[in-house]
Simulated assay, not measured.
Amino acid sequence: MQPCRAQHPFGSGSKRLFWGKDGKARTPMRKLFKSEAKAGMSSPTIWDDVGLNQHAARELEVLFGEKAAFETPKPEFLLQRIIHIATNTGDLVLDSFAGSGTTGAVAHKMGRRWIMVELGEHAQTHIVPRLRKVIDGEDKGGVTEVTGWQGGGGFRFYRLAPSLLEVDKWGRWIISKEYNPAMLAEAMCKHMGFTYSPSQDKAEYWKHGHSSERDFIYVTTLAMTHDQLRAISEDVGPDRTLLICCKAFNARIDDFDNLTVTKIPHAILSRCEWGKDDYSLKIASLPEREPPDELEPAVKPAGKAKPARTFAPTLFDCDED
């Protein structure tokens, strides 16, 4: 006796339900035509309605007034489709090879946050001007009309500095030879949460930065001795505190209540979370920008205990828009 096969619209009789090309698949599949697709359904494999590289090239010509040096720019409608499928409003979009900045431009117009990374000079010659046009509402092309974009928001442009540390031939972490004293002082101020502001007074050579009106930082590649620290401690005085970042030190640190001394490689390595798999990025919402928390002026405690320091690491060499 043969089983009855009902002619249901999605039954096997209509050839809309099948078990793979050879008919032996364990899980049945259902054919669905584009005209039957509904909102929320999976996107088709072939996208023939998101534009071509030629369209993207014309978009760049309109923005920059000349042909941009990109062989395969992506059209904004392609990025819109991808971002729409993969994210929701307010989500963070990352493009590690930013190229002409299409990802950031489209993500911005769609109300997403974004991070772009680019090594080429066009990071400044193309990406930054393009995003400024988006923010100022001067970019009228691409997905501007369909997203209802009229301008707004902002971004921060960071230049990544070379690594502060390198490994020597004995496997020890040392300060990179690319850093001169001024670069090292500025980098350490940023790493340790201080404002880089070297004193112009030669007598206050130890003032490379500050975190408050009474808390300062001094960065040196010297190996500090007990006598050197005592002399600096006397200059600092009882009403101020100083963080000394040095190559090495040999002293009884507890003798100086107004000094905190740390070795530079150790100070940096202690701030690196080696082996951590999940880094949660805290990206501030623009245009509002929260000012950094200022350290409370250190108060000399009773006995030999020193006040605890709280550092807020930041990137350095940054411009803002």
Rank of each mutant, 00 (worst) to 15 (best):
109 K>R: 15
111 G>Y: 07
112 R>V: 05
113 R>Y: 01
114 W>D: 04
115 I>A: 07
115 I>R: 05
124 Q>S: 13
126 H>F: 10
126 H>C: 03
127 I>P: 07
128 V>K: 11
129 P>M: 09
129 P>E: 07
131 L>C: 01
136 D>G: 08
136 D>K: 14
137 G>H: 03
137 G>L: 05
137 G>E: 05
137 G>Q: 02
138 E>F: 06
140 K>Y: 10
142 G>D: 05
142 G>P: 03
145 E>H: 11
146 V>N: 01
146 V>Q: 15
147 T>L: 01
148 G>E: 11
148 G>N: 08
149 W>T: 00
150 Q>C: 09
153 G>Q: 02
158 Y>F: 15
160 L>S: 13
169 K>Q: 11
169 K>E: 15
170 W>I: 00
171 G>C: 08
172 R>K: 14
172 R>L: 10
175 I>S: 02
175 I>M: 09
176 S>C: 10
177 K>E: 14
177 K>F: 02
178 E>D: 13
179 Y>I: 07
179 Y>W: 07
181 P>Y: 02
183 M>Q: 15
187 A>I: 00
187 A>T: 14
190 K>A: 12
192 M>N: 06
192 M>G: 01
193 G>M: 05
196 Y>N: 01
196 Y>S: 03
198 P>C: 04
198 P>F: 08
199 S>P: 03
201 D>F: 09
203 A>L: 09
204 E>M: 10
207 K>H: 12
214 R>N: 11
215 D>W: 02
215 D>I: 01
216 F>A: 04
218 Y>K: 01
221 T>I: 10
222 L>G: 00
223 A>Q: 12
225 T>E: 11
227 D>K: 13
229 L>F: 05
234 E>C: 00
238 P>G: 15
240 R>F: 09
241 T>V: 09
242 L>G: 04
242 L>A: 07
242 L>F: 08
242 L>S: 09
245 C>N: 11
246 C>H: 07
